[in-house]
Amino acid sequence: MKYLLNVKNLNSEFVREIQAESKTRILHCYQCGKCSAGCPIANEMEYKPNQIIRMIQLGMEESVLKANTMWLCASCITCTVRCPREIDIAEIMDVLRRYAFKRGIFPAAVADIPVFNRIFLRNIKLFGRLYELGLIGFFNLLTGNPFKDVLLGPKMFFKGKINLIPERIKNASEIKDIFKRSAEIEHSD
């Protein structure tokens, strides 16, 4: 399928939604490529950040959401601060991930990243603080690498850098409520 930049496809529902949610002017991108030049992970991405922006302009929703690009974004914000058109590319990557999260779309090749995020957040919901040993253990089990980084564990433990027992805040139930209300607000939007 050929894509041509014209008034019709520059006005897709997809571009309007991502533009509204990110509060950034995606249509202003003129493809200078500075975002991709400065991106530390562009090398590993299927489409570079500037290509993703063009694909959003063209309304290529499916291809954008299937790509590994947004999941490999490290949120370093280099792209955003160097954009001569003041487009917040890092925020667009966040919006795309949240858009995919809401719809349950995770490309298989990078599915471990949303899995990690989910375990991390469940940790916070339970304890109010991050329980690193639990996070890493669960993640390794769920992604089928039970022995990943296993040699680092004892080193960290003997240096007093790993908590065996999670640190809990006193009013952890308040945090559960914050999660619940946040989810309600997100879904009503």
Binding site: D94, I124, G128, I175, S182
Partner: peptide, 17 residues
């Protein structure tokens, strides 16, 4: 009783949270 800031996993998952 400070709470975890949510770090990257929060801002890529749920904006309000």
């Amino acid at each position: 009783d400070w709470v975890c800031c949510g770090a990257t996993p929060a801002h890529v998952t749920m904006h309000v949270l």
